[in-house]
């Protein structure tokens, strides 16, 4: 499948900023089932860009802007060719051992309610079956709010909320899997399944869990299914903060206003 992505991020500042330094995780990697045919990051002002990788192995673009700057638009346009993989990841360079993804972070602290829930659903099952059961059950118990998450909630807090974002669901899934001693991680990327043809206010997020003998397998609690060829993986980490599409720092006073617009379309 050929997927076309248009992802615009705009920051507006209430006062001119002297400098901006941003770390962008906006470039998908090539894997066995995902080939980047064309990809471009455009910025609407003079900027220095440097490409590298972070510790998780994600492709990173450092963006350095000298001000005064009152707004900046980062426009990502690209095309990715994907193929069917049953949600199993093949051919991604993995710099870290799976056990690293048993760790907790502030957003994915072990939570007694999630642990009890996960035990009840998957405690007696084989890992792969347990993960599928958790994914399905999480999908069924959740009302998904596709708006961009405003205040970041830890998984435990989000688990008790009436409606949750894809980011919350990925966190909850990771905490649940880790409570069964299964390595799990957060994935940021794009999905035509969740947002096809609509302007989405955020990139998509889902989870991956590591199953011995199979490797990393994707799970999307938003759909209750495994990510298929209409997904584009961009970055992974223990939680959303680690895989953030844009992590930024600015030198200057005042407030910032963020606007994100993502469109994913299928090209035949």
């Amino acid at each position: 499948m050929r997927l076309s992505i248009d992802h615009r991020t705009t920051y507006r500042f209430s006062a001119p900023q002297a400098r901006l330094v941003q770390m962008l995780r906006l470039t998908p990697p090539d894997t066995h089932d995902q080939t980047v045919a064309h990809w471009k990051i455009n910025v609407d002002r003079d900027a220095h860009m440097r490409h590298g990788r972070d510790g998780w192995g994600n492709r990173v673009t450092m963006l350095y802007v000298n001000g005064p700057v009152t707004s900046i638009e980062i426009a990502v346009e690209g095309e990715v060719v994907t193929s069917h993989s049953d949600g199993v990841l093949h051919g991604a360079g993995e710099p870290l051992a799976p056990a690293v993804f048993l760790r907790a972070t502030e957003a994915t602290l072990p939570d007694p309610a999630i642990t009890a829930w996960a035990q009840g659903i998957g405690g007696d099952a084989q890992p792969l079956a347990a993960l599928h059961a958790i994914n399905t059950a999480l999908h069924e118990r959740s009302r998904v709010d596709l708006k961009r998450p405003e205040t970041p909630l830890a998984a435990g807090a989000a688990f008790g909320e009436p409606s949750v974002t894809p980011r919350d669901l990925a966190h909850i899934f990771a905490v649940a899997a880790r409570s069964l001693s299964i390595p799990a991680r957060y994935v940021s990327g794009y999905s035509a399944a969740a947002f096809l043809g609509r302007h989405a206010p955020a990139p998509h997020s889902w989870a991956e869990a590591h199953v011995d003998g199979l490797g990393w397998v994707g799970f999307d609690p938003c759909t209750g299914r495994c990510p298929e060829e209409d997904y584009v993986r961009v970055a992974v980490a223990l939680d959303a903060a680690g895989a953030a599409p844009v992590a930024g720092s600015r030198l200057g006073v005042g407030e910032e206003d963020l606007d994100v617009d993502v469109t994913v379309s299928r090209q035949g």
Partner: peptide
Amino acid sequence: DLVLTNPQFRPEIAG
């Protein structure tokens, strides 16, 4: 596991 899940091991700078 003593290394990989140890908070002092920083995956952020792995590699």
